[in-house]
Design a binder for these strands. Structure first.
Lengths: 143, 143
DNA sequence: TATTGTTATACTCTATAACTATA
DNA sequence: TATAGTTATAGAGTATAACAATA
């Protein structure tokens, strides 16, 4: 079957495009974050803090170790972007954006959204076509 | 404009789906490579070697430093998957898959293609719709 | 006993700089 | 002088393990 070879080629072309798109999107994010003087991992943490969250929870959301969150929290605190506030359970500390942290988060998220590839390069109709295809790619039933 | 908020939401949903898809695809690749007892970076190198290539060229293709390619080449050689063969320019060494390297590459690429998300979850028609949208996302004119 | 956050430390991946041999 | 590959080393990013406080 010459069929197999050509299918293989189509598949790797599509996969590579997906990878390239995401790499470009990540590069965009890196650039935008740098514009706010933030390394990527701090920018991600700031965006994740849409409300005060236990450090444990943040670790799950960012899929990293608790000890690493301690690390991030220290850096964010040094910059005056978050503060650690005690939770009801006294083992827990919540990370909470400071006033300046909230302001930064607003500006950052607006910049990210405005810059998004999917807005810059696709029409509304394109996006309407794209969404269900991506959803299909994410449903893990047929395994 | 409540418009802006909802657009923002649509955008981040699409972007997140793209990221999730690629993460899943990469996880699949990691799993498949592990099935051949290869860490990801070695598997990528093996796939890149569809023909003997100067180490310099491989560095460009994998977008990494020459010194790192030396590193990869050592590991691949230890596994008996590649050999260094002298180029015409005597400064150059070509990395060339051994017989067993070629065999591995064939099986690996077949496994990758067969497992691809875009095959598992999309119909041929879906893929035909998806391709031009991804291409549009990759054309960097409208900046 | 289990869980939260912290500390100290170690590991993985990758790059930089200096080197050699060729060109 | 510039380039290909190598070596030794360093850095970024992240995890592991042991720990103190609390549940």
């Amino acid at each position: 079957m010459a069929d197999r070879e050509s299918r293989l080629e189509e598949v790797s072309r599509l996969s590579q495009m997906l990878i390239d798109i995401v790499e470009e999107a990540k590069a965009d994010f890196t650039r935008i974050a740098a514009g706010f003087d933030l390394p990527v991992h701090l920018a991600r943490a700031v965006l994740a803090l849409n409300r005060p969250a236990p450090m444990r929870e943040l670790a799950e959301q960012l899929t990293c170790d608790r000890s690493y969150i301690t690390n991030l929290a220290d850096q964010l605190e040094e910059r005056g972007l978050v503060s650690r506030v005690p939770g009801e359970d006294r083992r827990v500390k919540l990370l909470q954006l400071t006033r300046s942290g909230r302001s930064l988060r607003d500006r950052l998220s607006a910049a990210v959204a405005e810059d998004a590839l999917v807005l810059r390069r696709l029409t509304a109709a394109d996006r309407k076509t794209l969404a269900p295809l991506l959803e299909k790619l994410l449903t893990d039933e047929p395994r």
